[in-house]
Design a protein around this nucleic acid. Structure first.
Length: 476
RNA sequence: CGGGGUGUAGCGCAGUUGGUAGCGCGCUUGGUUCGGGACCAAGAGGCCGGGUGUUCAAGUCACCUCACUCCGACCA
């Protein structure tokens, strides 16, 4: 250990999980703060993660028939107010534009907190016939919600996301779409980001403003708190009626279409950090990692070392692996720490001793386990090792989730376990009991899981008959 | 929006009873190193978050603001 420890240490998770989180965000060079509260700069490495997530989802969206569009950033107040529940939900956190240059605007304009109203206003003009349906739109954009407290990725006043918006001729089709997109989010989380999810229905209290149903995927972070990682909403024809969107159906009758929307944001990057990270910093699943393999020459000045490392980088790239070499004159130890902090899943070291043995040293980020890989087989051994890491990260997160869901039958039991994971109980369905649970046990309902269990038939809050099982938790 | 904490070099900090600013790391240049955050030498870098007061004099005292951060209430 060198005496000069010039790189700032990351606060340990056990000592202060919140501080650990912000340390990772800044020290792994994912984000920087801007001059305005709640507006964050996504630095190249952080944005590269988002680009990969976008790439995964955009492909899925297109495979399922969706088209990308771009809607305006500003919403006239009168338009936002068209749907009552919606405006009540979002108005408290809208940012408003009131001036154009030095002129007061005749009507103030809301910086979009979400774009349902804009899509509706547009659809009203372009939808005519049942032949125009379904309309399957998506946009990649940022939205603004004037939050009180802010944290990188988890809660910003501006955040990047995608919002899908669709119209369908029938309720059945729209509901099918809602669940299809939820499943794409679950696929993204589980198979791309290695974050196991719980799929379920939001309660009346927790559902999206203006929705008939909100479906969610909930993830468990390393500290056992919940993160809502993607939502998909079925709107019925509520917005269509409010915005007077109609089409002529096959019977030549004017008919209201059924609508959905669904969104996933850069918040999932926060989830990634808090699911897989450790005291050395970020740990990225290989599939989403901007750099999958970092190749480090050891004693780079010795004959053949740099050339061998460069050749390995080229070979890995040719094999479709996102590989990078670091040929800077920082010491090897410095580089180890640097790329561990940045969560690069696999490190390959090449030094004089390795060249003598026709091998490279591979070190896994998740376990720090060291193995020797014959140089001739890197094109097959490296991808295999990356897949092993991907699976190991998912398995570890899955074990964390499965071992921290506790059944309970009283409010006291819920409270006792609330800081140690999710709690599942039966529930009568009354919002009053949900509020009571928040007040007495400090938890909110995360979802009514699709996978229901029978834990009895009594609501722990009121003692009345209960048919549904709810998962409770402390949420980010 | 309430309650705490913090703003001094890129980062981490020191700065006494008020007297116009210092340390470590990083950065630049040169050399030696290189298998777990290397070493030597010489350099560059500051409107002390912003504003208003008090004072002969403010990083230091008072008030106001802005930002970050943690804890609550509200949310992707």
């Amino acid at each position: 250990m060198a005496k000069n420890n010039q790189v700032t240490q990351i606060t340990s998770m056990d000592q202060d999980f919140a501080q650990w989180y912000t340390d990772v965000c800044t020290k792994a060079e994912l984000v920087d703060y801007s001059g305005v509260k709640g507006l964050f700069i996504l630095r190249p490495y952080g944005y590269a993660i988002w680009e990969n997530i976008m790439g995964f989802l955009d492909k899925k969206f297109k495979e399922t028939g969706h088209q990308n569009v771009s809607m305006p950033m500003l919403i006239p107040e009168s338009l936002l107010q068209r749907e009552k529940d919606h405006v009540e939900g979002f108005a408290p956190e809208c940012a408003w534009v009131t001036m154009g240059g030095s002129e007061q605007l005749p009507e103030r304009l809301c910086v979009r907190p979400t774009s349902e109203t804009l899509f509706c206003d547009h659809w009203k003009n372009v939808l005519h016939s049942w032949r125009d349906l379904p309309m399957l739109y998506n946009q990649w954009c940022s939205v603004m919600r004037w939050e009180k407290t802010t944290r990188p990725f988890l809660r910003g006043r501006e955040f990047l996301w995608q919002e899908g918006h669709t119209l369908h001729a029938t309720e059945a089709e729209a509901r099918e779409e809602t669940l299809r997109m939820l499943e794409i989010y679950a696929d993204c989380c589980e198979n791309y980001l290695a974050m196991p999810v719980i799929r379920g229905n939001k309660t009346e209290k927790e559902k999206f403003a203006g929705a008939v149903n909100t479906y969610t995927i909930e993830c468990m972070m390393h500290d056992h708190k919940a993160l809502q990682s993607g939502t998909s909403h079925y709107f019925g024809d509520g917005f269509a009626r409010a915005f007077d969107i109609t089409f002529q159906d096959k019977n030549n009758q004017a008919s209201y279409p059924h609508q959905t929307s669904w969104g996933l944001s850069t918040r999932t990057i926060g989830g990634l950090i808090m699911t897989h990270g450790d005291d050395r910093g970020l740990v990225l699943p290989p599939r989403v990692a901007p750099i999958q393999v970092i190749v480090l020459p050891i004693a780079a000045h010795k004959p053949g070392v740099t050339e061998a490392a460069e050749k390995i980088v080229d070979r890995l790239k040719a094999a479709g692996i996102r590989a990078k070499g670091d040929f800077s004159d920082n010491s090897p130890g410095w580089k180890y720490s640097e790329y561990e902090m940045k969560g690069v899943p696999l490190r390959l070291e090449v030094g004089p001793r390795d060249l003598e043995n026709d091998q490279a040293v591979a070190v896994r980020r998740d376990t720090l386990e060291k193995v020797f890989l014959p140089l001739a087989e890197l094109e097959s051994s490296v991808p295999a090792l990356l897949e092993t890491v991907q699976q190991a990260l998912f398995d570890r997160a899955k074990a964390n989730l499965d071992s921290h869901i506790w059944p309970a039958s009283t409010v006291e039991e819920v409270k006792a376990k609330a800081m140690d994971g999710f709690v599942k109980t039966m529930w009568c369905g009354d919002t009053a009991c949900e509020e009571k649970m928040k007040e007495l046990a400090g938890v909110s309902s995360r979802c009514i899981p699709f996978d229901q269990e029978d834990l009895g038939d009594v609501c722990p809050c009121c003692g009345r008959p209960a048919k549904k099982m709810v998962i409770w938790g402390v949420a980010y």
